[in-house]
Design a protein around this nucleic acid. Structure first.
Lengths: 99, 99, 99, 99
DNA sequence: ACCGTGGTTAGCTTTC
DNA sequence: GAAAGCTAACCACGGT
């Protein structure tokens, strides 16, 4: 841990909802980080809903989401496997001066 | 279940990577759904990385991600609790004919 | 992973329902663990039924299980929130050297 | 729904933590139900912890909880399948007067 | 009586 | 390697 700004977490004697600057800009900084995360989390939630929707549509046309998930998982594994093999290939090539 | 398209999962006699139409457009349809999900999953992955980055930055400036996560959790709980209490209030009101 | 007992999962040449000791007491040991879990699972199932019964009774006397569940949830959230806040407080205190 | 006791949910003008009897014993009754559920929930939680412990022990002696869970699931399916078949058998027997 | 939804639990991933 | 947070499967309920 570089510096320790945790002091900014300390409850202040004045009960305010505003971010406290305890001898610096620390409070504002922390609040900004937190709000950035919260925004990203919201986007993530929206995305999860989108995915659920697609599965819903698929189901409505007669496909089983459960099976689809398995298919997707398999495809992902394939892709990763291939990627790893490719990386290994590159490594070998570099190793023998084929770069 | 209305129709059962699962037959499209059945390996076809011709071993091709193309989506198979087993008596209709089923194969293409399924493939489209799957690719939509995969695209959304990619976005989700990106988002997860963004979140991780923010925590990384915060940590680099001296804040503990662990504590930040708990703060965010508490904030979320507050929001949810309030939302639920409001809903509950509505239920009570409906229950006693204040609707 | 320290040892790897997974070999005990391997079908043995003699097709028996008895636990196999593959070079030790491994089979019996595993079987014992599994049966302990299964017993606990049974208890859990019984408990779930008890809970369902209580809701049934309550409903029979005119209370809405749905609302009851929400009340219970809110009570639980209160307790958890308080607990977490207390823990967080300890963290803060530790963070500023008040430990 | 037989009677409707939901009126007992209505916030009363006097802010008390005690169960309110709104023209009867309703408040106490509800509170009793809720506390019974909460007790059972606690037992359930304890049970879940016990199960976790067993898996922990098993893991410590070299077994994979993940695989164990799959075994248990399979055993459960077998048992249920057999039970269903037995029931069916009874049904058949009854049907042909073998009861 | 079935479907869809919401809530709960288990499994997995990632973090420490 | 252990613990936690998050996601997906499961289940029970209410609605249609």
């Amino acid at each position: 841990m570089a510096e320790n700004n945790v002091t900014s977490f300390k409850p202040t004697d004045e009960g305010s909802n505003e971010a406290r600057d305890v001898g610096g800009v620390t409070g504002e900084r922390l609040k900004s980080f937190i709000e950035r995360v919260e925004r990203l989390e919201e986007e993530k939630t929206a995305l999860l809903e989108d995915i659920k929707e697609v599965y819903g549509e698929a189901k409505a046309t007669g496909f089983e989401p459960k099976i689809m998930r398995r298919v997707i998982k398999l495809r992902k594994m394939d892709i990763e496997k291939r990627r790893e093999e490719d990386e290994l290939l590159e490594l070998y090539k570099a190793a023998i001066g084929m770069a």
